[in-house]
């Protein structure tokens, strides 16, 4: 495991094209280990696109073309020889809309470890499911109905289940794409507390539309505008003393 202050991910000169349209322009950014880094910026600024570069989810979109280099612990992830399956086992993802599989709660969490062959017996599977649900702060609510349909849970519970599902394979990095945008304030608070807790074990990248959320959960913030990385630094600096006019305008609510 990297040290708390170590650089976990080095992104250099990353550009993304969707067909003829360039969505991301030469972004370079270092991500620290076991830190929460927030990506903020107005809609369509490329922050989600950038996030999807870290586990190569852009591969799924036929028209998307990614260039530049992203190194995870010194290893290039855009290497064509690297199997994205291997990468995604290291870099988990939580999506904007809670998307549990329409199966049981247990099956949702057990699926990842099972397909990667990380568990070999039913006993181990149960251990992993229990532990992951506890880490996601959901165990208390679902321990007596693990075999109910996951889709019957509330939105906030579903999102925590998705987090449990992502951490069940014990990734090193966790990507969160606006994880609270579909949730009510109470569920949001619970997830934010969870993120602070998870930070002890995982390097977390979070895309958010909410400035307050970025301020509450992150230590580092990167501000994007029109596909460019405008400014980045510690969250405290960005919010209290933005160097760039655009950043200031966005943070103070003048644009966005």
């Amino acid at each position: 495991m990297a040290k708390k202050t170590g650089i976990k991910i080095k992104a250099a000169d990353v550009s993304v094209h969707y067909g003829d349209k360039q969505a991301l322009h030469n972004v370079s950014l270092d991500i620290e280990a076991k830190t929460v880094t927030a990506f903020i910026g107005p809609s369509g600024c490329g922050k989600s696109t950038f996030l999807r570069c870290f586990n190569r989810m852009n591969d799924v979109i036929p028209s998307a073309k990614v260039s530049g280099s992203i190194q995870l612990d010194g290893a290039e992830i855009n290497d064509a020889a690297l199997d994205p399956v291997l990468l995604r086992a290291k870099v988990g993802m939580v999506f904007q809309k809670p998307n549990p599989f329409p199966k049981t709660i247990f099956e949702n969490v057990a699926y990842g470890p099972r397909i990667h062959g990380l568990v070999t017996s039913r006993r181990e599977e149960q251990d992993v499911v229990e532990d992951s649900l506890k880490k996601a702060g959901l165990w208390g609510e679902v321990s007596d109905r693990l075999h109910d349909q996951a889709t019957a849970l509330s939105g906030g519970q579903q999102q925590r289940l998705c987090i449990a599902r992502a951490i069940a394979v014990n990734p090193e990095v966790l990507l969160m794409d606006e994880p609270c945008s579909a949730l009510d304030p109470i569920a949001t608070t619970i997830i934010e507390e969870l993120i602070s807790e998870l930070q002890k074990k995982f390097t977390i990248l979070i895309v958010t539309h909410s400035m307050q959320q970025a301020a509450r959960v992150s230590q580092k913030t990167a501000y994007f505008h029109l596909g460019e990385l405008v400014e980045h630094g510690t969250t405290v600096d960005i919010f209290s003393n933005p160097k760039n006019d655009q950043t200031e305008a966005y943070i103070s609510g003048k644009i966005g």
Partner: peptide, 23 residues
């Protein structure tokens, strides 16, 4: 089938085949 289901499977490291057959 919503792409979110496929993305969920791919996101935890399922191969395309696993995403297709399992989900």
């Amino acid at each position: 089938v919503p792409t979110s289901i496929r993305d969920a499977a791919l996101g935890i490291g399922a191969s395309r085949m696993q995403a297709a057959l399992d989900h």
